[in-house]
């Protein structure tokens, strides 16, 4: 396993169908002092009520969860959720939003998040693909690998919908495929090594 995996500077997470519960499990495993900033994109309707997902995730998570605003600085120890109906992009040290047309039928798009994060964070990035019923995230995961980052994927067999993680595993050489619980434990240990 790559050494970088132990202390990435940013973790990006993408999920779709079944994602809210998978995210709750993933974030629920984080210790309160978890230092690595995390950016999460979950597919949902343009009209989904603002703040609902953030509140739901915060109930499960000891680390502060916030919806990302345009140009927000990326701060340690914070989980950022991409707002509905915007793409979430990563610049060096901050976020940017866009209303570009949907990519892979989605806005927010996981590919857009992963590709921009790969560009800005290169080998200091861990990307995580969870349950989902489409192919968003595959191109993004490829970009993460090309820039030297690490890709972790939820075991399709343990996912509510296997299509999205399976598509990534099929076309990208990912680092690890783990059932949700082990994946969560794996991430929870990051950045806390001496």
């Amino acid at each position: 396993m790559a050494e970088d995996l132990l202390s990435p500077r940013l973790i990006v997470v993408g999920t779709s169908w079944g994602g809210a519960d998978a995210l709750a499990a993933l974030l629920g495993a984080l210790p309160p002092e978890f230092p690595v900033p995390m950016a999460v994109v979950q597919h949902r309707g343009a009209d989904s009520l603002e703040g609902v997902l953030v509140r739901f995730l915060q109930e499960h998570c000891a680390v502060p969860v916030r919806e990302a605003d345009d140009k927000d600085a990326i701060e340690d120890g914070t989980v950022y959720v991409g707002p509905s109906d915007y793409h979430l992009l990563v610049e060096k040290g901050s976020f940017a939003l866009s209303v570009d047309p949907p990519v892979t039928l989605s806005r927010p798009s996981i590919d857009v998040l992963f590709e921009s994060a790969a560009d800005s964070y290169g080998p200091d990035l861990v990307a995580v693909v969870l349950t989902g019923a489409n192919r968003d995230g595959t191109d993004g995961a490829r970009a993460v690998k090309e820039q030297g980052g690490v890709v972790l994927v939820q075991d399709p067999g343990s996912a509510t919908r296997p299509e999205m993680p399976a598509a990534v595993i099929h076309s990208v050489e990912v680092d690890e495929v783990l059932p949700l619980e082990r994946l969560a434990a794996r991430i929870a240990g990051m950045g806390l090594e001496p």
């Binding site: 793409h87 992009l89 990563v90 610049e91 940017a96 866009s98 570009d100 857009v112 590709e115 921009s116 560009d119 800005s120």
Partner: peptide, 8 residues
């Protein structure tokens, strides 16, 4: 202009 989307 913001770099990430411009670059895309």
């Amino acid at each position: 202009y913001a770099r990430a989307s411009l670059r895309r």
